[in-house]
Simulated scan of single mutants.
Amino acid sequence: MSDFADLARRSLRDNGYSIKAAARAMNYDPAYLSRVLNGKQAPSERLAQSLDSLLGTGGALAGIVLSADDRSRVSRSIAHPSRLDAGTVDALAGVLAAYRRLDDTAKPESVIPATMAQMKEVTQLLKNARGPHRDRLAEVASEFVQFAGWMLAQAREDTQAVRLLNEALELADEIGNGTLAAQALNFKGYVARQQARPQAIARWFAAAARTPGAHPAQRLGDILQAAAGMAQLGQKDQALRMVEEAEQLTDEAAALPPPRTAYWLTPVFNRLNLGLCTLALGRYGDSVDHLSSGLAQLPDDLRSAPWTWEHREALRKAKEVA
């Protein structure tokens, strides 16, 4: 309840709404809305849906609100972790999916506090969990820790982000989930790119691409991003060979649906990766084409996502010198 209140309150603030203005726009009693947004009263599903409509958060806030049965189930599992059941893991996975959707609509700084609180609850439950559903919970925990690291990386809290990404990697390795392990390494590459460290860029993206169990779409994107790091190091021949390697994965990657834990890895998204790579290679016209096309082909609900700023900035730089 407090996490929902924090997220909704911050989202309203980011969109310029006071409590009174939001209540008026949604036709709600301001006193009721104030109690919910201050964590004093549980939100109804209808209110959460109304807030999603007002803020354009794509159902994410409603997805955070657990049903009474799910709240009871999660509470029982927290009190008796040795009796962890499938319903609890499903409920927590649903909450995580809702947080993922917020990444496409809300500022990272507004999502981080509630994300960290949820992450701590899930990882604490995992420490004492037993039984046949523990590995599934470990998968959810790894993804939650990884997501928290990603959000911190976007906010440039690099040290804490890398610490969490390392923890997520260990959890993924514990259960042998190559997809999650590769994604954690990918995010470490993202941190290195924000720090303008080409050797680390090449290292972490190459490690992600070579991770056993990585999805072909992950491998394709990671090879392209590793190639960009190599190009920045002046090793353009090696970078071009890596681009050719990535191109050989194009059909295989497109033939499979993206992994559930990396739903954004579509051919369009990897065209953005190709745009970053060709920019690093000095092929500015190609970079403009790839980045422009990739951004234009993103689904409507992703075009203004905070993570797209990097690609828009790269497009601006490519246009300057094309």
Rank of each mutant, 00 (worst) to 15 (best):
A207D: 13
A168F: 03
G294L: 02
D158F: 12
A5E: 05
M1G: 13
L180C: 04
L55K: 01
E167T: 12
S18K: 02
V140W: 08
P212N: 09
R156L: 09
A305I: 02
A93D: 14
D158T: 14
G131S: 14
N177W: 06
V65C: 09
A207G: 03
A208Q: 04
V321G: 09
P43V: 01
R136D: 15
G131V: 12
L220A: 10
Q49I: 00
D70K: 08
R10Y: 02
V162Q: 08
R136A: 15
V243Q: 03
S72E: 14
A91Q: 11
L7P: 02
R156Q: 14
A239C: 07
V162S: 07
A209R: 01
E167N: 07
A214K: 04
E313A: 15
A155H: 08
M116H: 09
G176K: 12
A182D: 05
W309P: 00
S82K: 14
I201S: 07
L249K: 13
L51T: 07
L61K: 00
S287I: 04
M1R: 12
G285I: 02
E244W: 01
L137R: 12
A68E: 15
L55M: 03
P113E: 03
W307V: 08
C277K: 00
R10F: 02
L279T: 11
P267A: 04
S34R: 01
Q225K: 11
V111M: 10
A62E: 10
L249W: 13
A148K: 00
A192P: 12
G59K: 04
L55E: 03
P30W: 03
Y263Q: 08
L169R: 07
A93P: 00
F147T: 11
D6I: 09
A208Y: 01
L240R: 15
L302T: 06
Q183K: 07
Q160A: 10
S82F: 07
N166F: 03
R10S: 11
E109P: 01
L92C: 11
R193Y: 12
N270Y: 05
R210W: 06
S77K: 00
L92N: 10
A200D: 15
L233E: 14
N38R: 12
L165G: 06
D173W: 09
Y284G: 14
Q146P: 00
